[in-house]
Design a protein around this nucleic acid. Structure first.
Length: 720
DNA sequence: GTGAATCATCTTTTT
DNA sequence: GATGATTCAC
């Protein structure tokens, strides 16, 4: 290991002393506490190269990243650094799929399992709650799903929960959990959390499997360790227990997934878990200007539950961080777009500009402004491609082909377009299946035995089943080819084409899906339909971020993790949004929101622009908002910020009220949104034009419908 | 019994 | 402003 340069051409002399230490530490546990912009990614890549250089077979190295995108990028970096292929690089979830497909049958998991995304999960949970015969308003499926997910992340199985249930709520919860699990099992399906939980249990309960995997992966690297939850923690431990060659990297100040079960304690307690662990701190920051770092440091210092560490700036001073307030969201978006437009015209590289926000819905206003200014942009996870109806429909057919036990896929496939099989028929099929202990597809195959369904209905079911059987009977080929056949033979293609222009977008999307499948066919090692479906389930739209798109990137603060840009805009830094009102319940939650802003700020290399709006439309309501407490914490004083808007005009009304007044008129259209001083926001249902005595009927959000005289009601138009 | 249209509800972050 | 459930029309 004395060599100073690897065959790969990575010069050790270009690394700092601490980076070198992390790269060259070969055996035994290693904790790398890496602050933002500290060259962590480079250290990991170099470390993999160094291990291979030292004689470790690439095949024996396993690197775990947080997202598929990060995995792809690391794969590329490792490849270009000269390290031969064969290093396993993936997310926890993808790794678990591979392990379960290989060893799952020990725990009665068939390799062709479906992976249920949140829509599928919701469907099953709803069914589970219904089956338990409890009040849906007290046991809201979405909430139950949340709780069950939390339990699974903590590796609490049904038995554990049932065993300690002692009051009505927890007993009911245990019943619902049990029912939910039973439904998943009947469908031969796993949800996201199951992938982790089942793998963790497999490693715990089958020492020989664990030993085999320990032999397969002799060196384990886990990135973003601060965001691992309990099951991921146990998996990492299980994978490394035989050799202790575990290197974890992360930064407690960048932990932003507590709500998903991430436990910051995992990284804080690493030295306790592995007493002989070496610890390397990377505190120098090679990314951001001191101006940005000082502010980020100031902010994060408000978190009480943290190990104090400093950010050491290495770059020269640059421009100051800009914090601005705007009259409303439109003004904010226009200002951001205007500023970017100016930069664009001055020759700025749009790849190096990003806009971050707290919630996805906030991209809309920005997109409008960008379109106005003709600025090319990409929304990372804007339209969720794989969540589109037509895409889910297509995948429904494929899932059913692969896993006929999957009722969710069956229902999806049957319902892609009208084929004369409706609600009542489906209920009968489901009923028959239940009585006979088979899935809906199997029940449909035996529809001849379901007496309650008429002859016509049976015929239509037979056509559907015949179609699926035909597709299943075909030689397994390339996924793209299978897909084309499905599109055609299912009748979906004809249906969409005959719908004409209305469905043209859907056809284009399906063609894009087929293209993407073609790309999969070319790159996948195991090009089976099962593998395709299981991979696609773990694909998130955050993975769609293209670094070299030549466009401005719009994304949530969560999606920004791990990225860096020359210029960063963070919008909507307002009370209620950041910290989000749903995260304002406890100190811990506020601290996480603070870390979120910290992550956003430290993505910026040179320019950081933070803004907020004084009025924002939330759920259709035009509401006053205040700037975030975090801005005060970094020393911002709203009163200094006069240039955008005088706080109050002479008659005591804010400029926004004025704007509403200007639009007031005596004619209203049905469907128009209006505001009333006393009743709030509502929608016009009727308008009777009687000149000065015109009457308008409005249904307000409170649920009340009122008839009002226009001349007295003083209604204001509200933009929707 | 089936499919379309309207109505109501609920809005964080994601593998 | 989207999605799901319920009602409505055939």
């Amino acid at each position: 290991m004395a060599k100073e340069t690897f065959a790969s051409g990575i010069g050790l002399e270009r690394l700092t002393e601490s980076q070198k230490k992390a790269v060259l530490h070969k055996d035994g546990p290693l904790l790398v506490l890496a602050g933002p912009g500290s060259g962590k990614t480079r250290v990991i890549t170099c470390r993999i190269a160094a291990l291979i250089e030292a004689g470790v077979r690439p095949y024996n190295i396993c690197a775990i990243t947080f997202t598929n995108k990060a995995a792809d990028e690391m794969r590329q970096r490792v490849a270009t650094s000269g390290a031969a292929g064969g290093v396993h690089i993936s997310t926890f979830h993808s790794l678990c799929v591979r392990i379960l497909r290989r060893y799952g049958e020990n725990a009665r998991i068939k390799p062709n399992f479906s992976i249920y995304d949140d829509a599928d999960q919701k469907r099953c949970m709803k069914q589970a709650v219904k089956a338990c015969n409890v009040d849906m308003t007290n046991f809201v499926p979405a909430r139950m799903l949340n709780i069950v997910s939390g339990l699974k992340n903590d590796l609490e199985d049904v038995e554990a929960v049932a065993g300690r249930a002692d009051d009505y709520f927890s007993k009911t919860l245990a019943r619902i959990y049990t029912a939910y699990e039973r439904i998943l099992a009947a469908n031969n399906a796993l949800d996201f959390d199951d992938l982790l939980l089942r793998t963790a249990f497999l490693l715990r309960d089958f020492p020989d499997i664990r030993a085999e995997l320990n032999g397969r992966f002799k060196y384990l690297l886990v990135d973003e360790y601060q965001d691992t939850n309990h099951s991921q923690y146990q998996i990492a431990k299980g994978l490394a227990i035989g050799h202790g060659n575990i290197c974890v990297t992360g930064d407690p100040d960048q932990s932003i997934y507590r709500w998903r079960g991430a436990d910051i304690g995992n990284i804080l307690a690493f030295e306790t878990d592995w007493p002989d662990a070496a610890v390397v701190k990377l505190e120098e920051n090679f990314r951001s200007s001191p101006n940005i770092l000082e502010m980020a440091d100031k902010l994060i210092a408000f978190n009480m539950k943290r190990k104090v560490k400093s950010l050491i700036a290495t770059r020269p001073r640059g421009q100051d961080v800009q914090i601005r307030g705007f009259a409303d969201v439109a003004a904010e978006s226009e200002a951001v777009a205007g500023q970017i437009k100016a930069a664009m015209e001055a020759g700025a590289n749009l790849n190096e500009i990003a806009v971050f926000y707290r919630v996805n819905s906030m991209s809309r206003a920005l997109e409008e402004a960008f379109i106005d200014e003709q600025i090319p942009y990409q929304v990372v996870r804007g339209i969720e491609f794989y969540a589109r109806k037509e895409i889910r429909d297509m995948l429904g057919y494929l899932k059913l082909m692969v896993n006929p036990a999957d009722d969710v896929a069956f229902l999806r496939a049957v319902g892609t377009h009208p084929r004369g099989i409706g609600k009542a028929t489906l209920e009968r099929i489901a009923g028959f299946g239940k009585i006979n202990g088979v899935g809906m597809y199997e029940a449909a195959r035996q529809s001849g035995r379901i007496e309650t369904i008429g002859v016509g209905g049976r015929g239509r079911i037979a056509v559907f089943v015949g179609m699926i059987e035909g597709l299943r009977g075909d030689e397994p080929g390339k996924v793209a080819e299978v897909m084309e056949r499905v599109f055609e033979e299912s009748g979906l293609e004809n249906y969409l084409l005959s719908a004409g222009e209305k469905e043209q977008g859907a056809v284009e999307n399906i063609n894009e899906l087929i293209n993407a499948a073609g790309r999969y066919d070319e790159t996948a090692e195991d090009g089976s339909l099962v593998d395709y479906l299981q991979s696609i389930a773990l694909y998130s739209d955050t993975d769609a971020y293209e670094p070299a798109s030549g466009k401005v990137s719009l994304m949530t603060l969560h999606a920004a993790k791990g990225l860096e840009f020359e210029n960063v805009y963070i919008v909507g830094v307002e009370d209620g949004l950041l910290p989000h009102e749903r995260s304002a319940g406890s100190v811990d939650e506020i601290e996480e929101e603070r870390r979120l802003l910290f992550v956003g700020m430290t993505r910026a290399k040179a320019g950081l622009n933070i803004s907020y709006a004084r009025y924002r439309t939330i759920y259709g309501q035009f509401l006053r908002s205040r700037c975030s407490q975090f801005l005060y914490e970094v020393g911002y004083d709203e009163d200094d910020d006069f240039d955008e808007e005088p706080a109050e005009s002479s008659d005591g009304k804010s400029s926004c009220d004025m704007e509403l007044e200007e639009e007031r008129s005596d004619v209203f259209a049905v469907g128009q949104r209006v505001g009333h001083k006393k009743f709030g926001i509502g929608v016009v249902k009727e308008f009777h034009d009687l000149g000065a005595n015109s009457i308008v009927v409005v249904r307000f959000q409170s649920g009340k419908t009122k008839s009002l005289m226009v001349q007295y009601a003083k209604l204001m138009r509200v933009r929707s």
